[in-house]
Design a protein around this nucleic acid. Structure first.
Length: 823
RNA sequence: GCUGGGGUGGCGGAAUUGGCAUACGCAGCGGACUUAAAAUCCGUGGCCGCAAGGCUUGAGGGUUCGAAUCCCUCCCCCAGUACCA
């Protein structure tokens, strides 16, 4: 007990003062390099990754809410004996820097790096255990040199290609927008209605991986995320069918995709998208004017107008007819913008009897409706009131009449394939990933356009293609890079004649698709990372961050990984084994924090007032991490009180008298806490973990008051409490650990183990119910039999009053918990 | 509309497999200490009722000895998505 004697000799420490100890320990951690991670370490590796932030200027409460619990989880794994890689960096390319440049006349680079400096120091204040030697900044040339390298690798494999496509165009900002920047058809910045504009763009062939991306086998990911990805990919099984066009000189058939080939006999008209390539050739002379003006009107319509759900289905007749290959019926071909040019084949066979949208269109334009199924509740001989999707047996389908409806699809597909008029097919909603941006602040696409040689990739040795500085940003609709003649003008790497650089930059989602790989070997100057570092650390063991990236970043990074795997660069099917999404933190009023609402809580103020430990803990305590919710600093006193009590308990000398009972009770409480906190932290349930630690703290305070605990038990309990608090409140734990004369650092100690034998209680409280209502409680040995419990219950005055003289009809006994007497 | 998540005290929230509803906190109330306040500590703690007791997990119904938990119908909130053939 010499350790304890030393505690006794020391004067009582001053009251808990977060400021002095937090600064002190952060300096000590930095100078001792405690957070540096080495690949040469005997402990099993564990890669804990938190989504890196965009350097917007200040670390806000949302960042704290993502990062502080992630840090606690990483620290916990470290104490469990893993060599934990927990890196951080900045997703530093992107629109806000460029917009700041336009609005305030600052330089995007200077603005970005200034923000990074600021946020880096704020992150240090949090006390997070990042290995800063591995920091990655995506706008560093040393980083985007490899982003460009990846582009070339994908290009080499045929996964990058150039094509003309419609992009979201904001007339106010004079630039293209990413899909995620279009909210309900409006530009998120200016609220202008977004238009479509055709541009030649670069794409990644993510659709090549559509099928594999649907497979989440073996992944520990939240179900909502996998569902959203499945919906986004949107796999539809059906068939493509070819309809001859009854127009002189047109041999090409009109091909449609349908999920319901079984309804082919009910196809009473066809609809092609206004963008469909056949529209010019099939439109008849007398319909030409009306079709042309419809196509023009559609392309002029804003996204808002087109997306309006209330809008009537517009469309016009092309004057052309198609021949149904199954029954030879001659059906009119219409064009309407409810059929999308970008999905399926851009054309449909319309079956109004069995499709809601086709029915609405048919009713509006007086087109035929022919049902092809019998239905028990619908008289199919009368005009239908609406479409119905399923029936019992086929009708109006010639030779197929009488076929059970559930067999019809395979029968029709088989016949189509046999006669060469169609084939079974699968279509995806997922489109290829458009990666071109007509923006300045991004990695230049490493491509050179030569009049003679065509599209030529920049040779590997010429990387990086450095983003030029001193560029004029006034939006013109073209990439600002086009203005830098001396940058654009270049010699063709193949023929040496004059050529021009690609002026578009890469989507910033490309930077974040592989950053987790760079962390494993961030200073490698010959490769994005070495094979050894890759196989040591990858894939990521647990990835924490927001669900807002469900179908963008998280889908892209899976695609990237699978492409890298096919190149032999990484092994395994998936980049992140486990994913955990924290919820959205809101202002005290329950709304999203925003300056205009005036409900912003500034972390710096709270750290100033209460310390980083208290703020970390409060964020973790307010509720389940995956649920998010309102943050109100009014709850802070509870956390501060707890930390103060912890401080008091840990700095007091240990009691010296002791009898068995009080010691055993304290040991049981301690081991129960270890058991519960361990499983809570494994499941990211920080709120209940802290609740258990508060309870143990109170138990210690009370035990000290009542006395009877022996010194060894007391010390064991206090030290377990400090160790369990360490991941959550790293500064105070370190201070208390040192104060107790223990060796530096608390963060390098083993996580406490619990003894199952100590957790079991000898005596348990049994609830006695009469007819399901609680009437009394008994304290019985844990292994009491039903007979013991029944005898004990009937001995109770209260219970007898409710049971009366009648014989119990039934008695239910749940050992160790409850006895229910039914009368 | 579709998909996913949620609805429990004045507030944030807790509750293995159906088994003590409201753990842990905030706020409140009462008390101790203090000239006083802050801080700290102790007690109290859903609603109705003097009490015995009754009622209570968005609403209604069901299964069960027993339901916050399972089933059915409906309402509301949040997120994603939007004519995907």
């Amino acid at each position: 007990m010499d350790r304890e004697d030393r505690v006794n000799e020391e004067p009582m420490l001053d009251r808990y003062n977060p400021h002095s100890i937090e600064t002190k320990w952060r300096e000590r951690w930095a100078s001792s390099g405690i957070d540096r991670v080495s690949d040469a370490d005997d402990r099993p590796p564990f890669y804990a990754l938190t989504m890196f932030p965009y350097p917007s200027g200040d670390l806000h409460t949302g960042h704290w809410y993502i990062i502080a619990p992630s840090d606690a989880a990483a620290r916990f794994r470290r104490m469990q004996g893993y060599n934990v890689l927990f890196p951080i960096g900045f997703d530093a390319f992107g629109l806000p820097a460029e917009n700041a440049a336009i609005e305030r006349g600052v330089d995007p680079k200077g603005w970005t790096y200034g923000n990074i400096d600021r946020m880096r120091s704020q992150l240090r204040t949090m006390g997070a255990s990042f290995d800063w030697d591995r920091e990655v900044i995506t706008c560093d040339t040393e980083y985007y040199r490899w982003t460009q390298w990846w582009f070339l690798k994908l290009y080499e494999r045929g996964l990058a290609y150039r094509s003309e496509a419609a992009a979201n165009w904001c007339p106010g900002c004079q630039t293209v927008l990413a899909n995620e920047q279009v909210i309900d058809g409006l530009c998120e910045r200016s609220d202008d209605p977004v238009e479509r504009r055709f541009l030649t763009q670069w794409f990644f062939r993510i659709t090549d991986y559509a099928e594999e991306l649907l497979d989440f086998e073996g992944l520990d990911w939240p179900e909502p995320i996998t569902t959203m990805q499945r919906n986004w990919i949107g796999r539809s099984e059906g068939a493509t069918l070819h309809f001859q066009v009854d127009v002189k000189g047109v041999d090409e058939p009109l091909t449609v995709f349908t999920t319901r080939p079984d309804t082919v006999y009910g196809a009473t008209f066809m609809v092609i998208a206004p963008e469909h390539p056949l529209i010019e050739t099939i439109t008849s002379m007398d319909q030409r004017t009306v079709v042309q003006s419809y196509v023009a009107a559609t392309s002029r319509a804003s996204e808002v107008e087109r997306l309006s759900t209330e809008r009537e289905k517009t469309g016009v007749f092309t004057g052309a007819y198609a021949i149904n290959p199954f029954n030879g019926a001659r059906v009119p071909i219409w064009t309407a913008d409810y059929v999308l040019g970008t999905y399926g084949t851009g054309a449909i066979m319309a079956v109004p009897a069995h499709d809601e949208r086709d029915f609405e269109f048919a009713r509006q334009h007086g087109l035929d409706v022919v049902p092809v199924f019998d239905h028990p509740d619908i008289d199919v001989d009368k005009p239908l009131e609406g479409a119905f999707t399923n029936g019992e047996t086929m009708i109006n389908s010639e030779a197929l009449d009488g076929t059970p409806a559930n067999e019809a699809i395979s029968v029709v597909v088989a016949r189509a394939e046999k006669e060469g008029i169609g084939t079974g097919a699968i279509t995806y909603r997922l489109r290829d990933w458009l990666i071109s941006r007509q923006r300045y602040w991004g990695a230049p696409i490493p491509i050179i356009h030569c009049d003679d040689c065509g599209v030529i990739p920049v040779p590997d040795g010429d990387l990086p293609v450095v983003l030029p500085e001193g560029v004029h940003f006034e939006p013109t609709g073209q990439s600002p890079l086009t203005q830098i003649e001396e940058w654009v003008s270049v010699k063709c790497p193949q023929c040496g004649s004059g050529a021009r650089r690609e002026t578009d930059t890469l989507d910033t989602f490309m930077c974040s698709s592989w950053y987790q790989m760079r962390y494993v070997d961030p200073h490698n100057s010959v490769l994005p990372f070495s094979k050894e570092a890759g196989s040591h650390w990858l894939p990521v063991d647990v990835y924490t961050g927001g669900a807002e990236h469900a179908v963008m970043h998280l889908l892209y990074t899976r695609f990237f990984w699978k492409a890298a795997r096919d190149m032999g660069i990484v092994q395994g099917r998936e980049p992140m084994k486990r994913l955990f999404n924290q919820g959205v933190i809101l202002g005290p009023d329950g709304n999203r924090m925003s300056k205009s609402r005036g409900n912003v809580v500034a972390p710096d103020d709270l750290v100033e007032r209460y310390g980083a430990d208290a703020f970390r803990c409060q964020l973790m305590f307010i509720g389940p991490w995956d649920q998010g919710g309102p943050y109100n600093p009014s709850g802070m006193p509870g956390i501060v009180r707890w930390l103060n009590r912890l401080w008091t308990v840990a700095t007091e000398s240990s009691p010296d008298e002791g009898d068995g009972v009080a010691s055993r009770e304290l040991a049981a409480a301690t081991h129960r806490t270890i058991r519960d906190v361990t499983s809570d932290l494994e499941g990211f349930r920080f709120n209940t973990a802290i609740a258990r630690l508060m309870e143990l703290t109170s138990t210690l305070v009370r035990a000290r008051g009542t006395g009877g605990v022996d010194s060894a038990t007391w010390v064991g309990s206090v030290e377990a409490l400090i160790l369990m608090t360490a991941p959550l409140a790293p500064h105070i734990s370190e201070e208390l650990w040192e104060h107790r004369g223990k060796s530096y650092s608390v963060h390098q100690q083993a996580w406490p183990a619990f003894d199952e034998a100590l957790v079991v209680e000898d005596m348990v409280e049994i609830v006695v119910q009469v007819n399901g209502k609680v009437r009394d409680r008994l304290t019985l040995p844990a292994d009491a039999s039903e007979e013991d419990a029944r005898v004990g219950a009937l001995a109770s005055e209260k219970v007898r009053g409710w049971v009366g003289s009648s014989e119990p009809r039934r008695v239910i006994y749940v050992p160790g918990k409850l006895l229910n007497i039914v009368v």
